[in-house]
């Protein structure tokens, strides 16, 4: 593969993704604190956390767990690279699912009831956001005629104008993906819940650090997809993505945690309902 400018940009973007994610998490914590009328931690707090975790005495649950934690990060990065190199969107989604499965296997394998129930809930999280995200991606490619991000970016009309409902649906998906209230059923970043740390309960030290970074990467990947909604101008796209990010934090702060049944119902009804209406409208409008 010849190294041209776009490849270099892709590589740089891919390498920057974890850092972007970390900073975003810092912003998240700072914003959350401000919304709660507190000062909050420094912006680079997530990096402190991860570095500290990395240096801690390695405690593991069994021999499968650390490998799976690494694979979670690895596949999250692989999914991110599909975005960074502007490749297949659909494949990115499947790779994300693979990363999730790794996390859940790590949580399951510990045979601790808390992490097990957390893993079970993580499955339900997947069940609730995956079909919706798949539908959004299909909607995008129905409009643009391709699943390849490069092709989607080459599409001239901003997608937001054609698929406004899908953008709203992405907000729900993002809340689920970021593990924010009301849908932080499987294990939230720092809030307490009935499952202690849920799916993260048995991670400790470097395994937790790996999982944490993996989560950052996944969030950034998701935001990058949101950015596609205004592909012609990357700045507006970024602004759209950040708007949803702030929206997710806002939603986190005004809702209590709801049950997983509610999560499933909400994501499916809102997700399927809005996207279908949007597609039908486009179909009658003669766009697709």
């Amino acid at each position: 593969m010849a190294l041209n400018t776009s490849t270099i940009i892709s590589i740089v973007f891919l390498a920057a993704m974890p850092f972007l994610g970390g900073i975003l998490m810092g912003v998240d914590r700072r914003l959350t604190a401000r919304m709660q009328n507190r000062m909050g931690p420094p912006l680079i707090q997530p990096f402190y956390d991860v570095l500290k975790l990395w240096a801690k005495e390695p405690y593991i649950a069994n021999n499968i767990q650390p490998l799976m934690a690494f694979m979670y990060l690895g596949f999250a990065m692989l999914a991110a690279s599909f975005v960074a190199f502007q490749l297949d969107l659909l494949l990115m989604l499947f790779t994300t699912a693979l990363a999730d499965i790794c996390l859940i296997v790590a949580a399951f394998s510990a045979k601790s009831p808390y992490s097990y129930i957390g893993g079970r809930r993580e499955f339900l999280v997947m069940l609730s956001y995956e079909p919706v995200l798949l539908l959004v991606e299909i909607a995008i490619s129905l409009v643009t005629g391709t699943f390849i991000i490069k092709g989607i970016r080459a599409y001239e009309t901003p997608l937001l104008l054609l698929l406004p409902a899908a953008y709203v649906v992405m907000q729900v998906v993002l809340v689920v993906e970021m593990k924010k209230s009301p849908f932080d059923v499987s294990g939230s970043a720092h809030a307490h819940q009935e499952l202690v740390r849920g799916v993260y309960t048995e991670f400790s030290g470097y395994t937790m650090a790996l999982v944490e970074v993996g989560h950052w990467v996944k969030v950034v990947t998701m935001l990058a997809i949101v950015g596609l909604f205004w592909a012609p101008n990357p700045f507006i796209g970024t602004a759209l993505a950040l708007a949803l990010f702030v929206g997710a934090i806002l939603i986190d702060n005004v809702y209590p945690r709801l049950s997983w049944q509610r999560m499933l119902k909400t994501t499916w009804t809102i997700g399927f309902g809005l996207v279908i209406v949007n597609l039908l409208a486009l179909s009658f409008g003669g766009v697709i």
Partner: peptide, 19 residues
């Protein structure tokens, strides 16, 4: 809580001994 806000120091009440 807001008045004292231990999170300024990066403190999180994590609740899980392993972390």
């Amino acid at each position: 809580t807001p008045k004292f806000d231990l999170e300024r120091f990066g403190i999180v009440n994590i609740g899980d001994p392993k972390q």
